[in-house]
């Protein structure tokens, strides 16, 4: 018996070691580098002297940077809520009313993933541009007589972010709703609950794992976004991602860039822990 169990765990160790080495080398080690850099001292021309200079973290509290961090979190939160509001009805529809076409519908949501985010962002630049399809359609329908400024606005950034991250919300929601036992709904209605009541007291709570997973999957990359504000917003808004990139390249302040990256990571982990604790960790089981 003991021998068998021993052999089994050796096998498991064998299977797990490639992924452990991979994550260790390419995830943990770079992360430790950033942590070490964040306490280092930047050379004037880039490069870094390791040491203990907590000043990099104090600099984060400069109102200029703090403002950008707060704004980034607000943008990420807004994006998460919008994705949830738009994604939930769609996931619900596919899971419960999709019937035999379910898989095709889910496939349609995943197809955009097959092309690069960059191409899709550029497509929006073309669609929303002064001579773009959107403006030409509006003019054709006589809704406006001159091209509207649709691209390079804060609204274009919001739209681009929702567009990019919506599938990350829909897929976990669908996975949670798809497993949902419909008899529970029938039972609730048999017992006299209204449709609305059934949804809020039965369906929605049971789909919580999907809500949590989707929210996290949308919130984290949204907070790190730096391409969409530049491409669709005309770089008129600065997010933490843009700031970090600028510190590493133009300002050549690797230490401060690393401190910002660590702060962002800490904030995100904190926000997620708070969120999961608030809605209940036990609901995550079964994701």
């Amino acid at each position: 018996m003991g021998k068998g169990r021993h052999g089994w765990s050796l096998g498991l160790a064998g299977l797990l070691s490639p992924v452990t080495i991979w994550l260790g080398l390419f995830f943990l080690v770079p992360l430790l580098f950033i942590l070490a850099y964040s306490f280092g001292k930047s050379g004037v021309y880039g490069g870094i002297t390791l040491g203990f200079y907590p000043g990099n973290y104090l600099k984060v509290f400069n109102p200029l940077y703090l403002d950008i961090i707060v704004r980034t979190l607000v943008i990420a939160l807004t994006n998460t809520l919008l994705c949830l509001l738009l994604g939930y009805p769609l996931a619900y529809f596919i899971a419960f009313k999709g019937g035999r076409r379910k898989h095709i519908l889910i496939l349609l949501i995943m197809i955009p993933f097959w092309t690069s985010l960059l191409l899709r962002a550029y497509a929006w630049v073309v669609i929303l541009g002064g001579n773009g399809i959107a403006n030409r359609t509006l003019q054709f329908l006589h809704i406006t007589d001159h091209p509207l400024d649709l691209i390079f606005t804060p609204q274009a950034v919001t739209m681009g972010m929702v567009y990019s991250y919506l599938p990350f919300m829909i897929l976990p929601l669908y996975a949670a709703l798809e497993k949902f036992d419909r008899r529970l709904k029938e039972a609730a209605q048999d017992l006299g609950a209204s449709r609305w009541h059934t949804f809020w007291r039965v369906t929605f709570p049971l789909s919580m794992p999907g809500v949590i997973a989707g929210s996290i999957l949308v919130f984290i990359p949204s907070a790190g976004e730096f391409v969409i504000p530049n491409l669709l917003g005309g770089a008129r808004t600065v997010m933490v991602g843009n700031l970090i990139q600028q510190q590493f390249l133009e300002a050549r302040d690797w230490a401060f860039g690393s401190a910002l990256a660590v702060m962002l990571a800490v904030l995100l982990v904190g926000a997620i822990m708070f969120y999961v604790r608030k809605v209940g960790a036990e609901k995550l089981e079964g994701v």
Binding site: I34, S116, L117, L118, F226, V227, Q245, A261
Partner: peptide, 18 residues
């Protein structure tokens, strides 16, 4: 530049150096 940006989307700023 945009292509480089996209390459960076996935991950860390350090990718520039790697």
């Amino acid at each position: 530049l945009k292509a480089m940006g996209a390459a960076g989307v996935a991950g860390s700023t350090l990718s520039v150096l790697a």
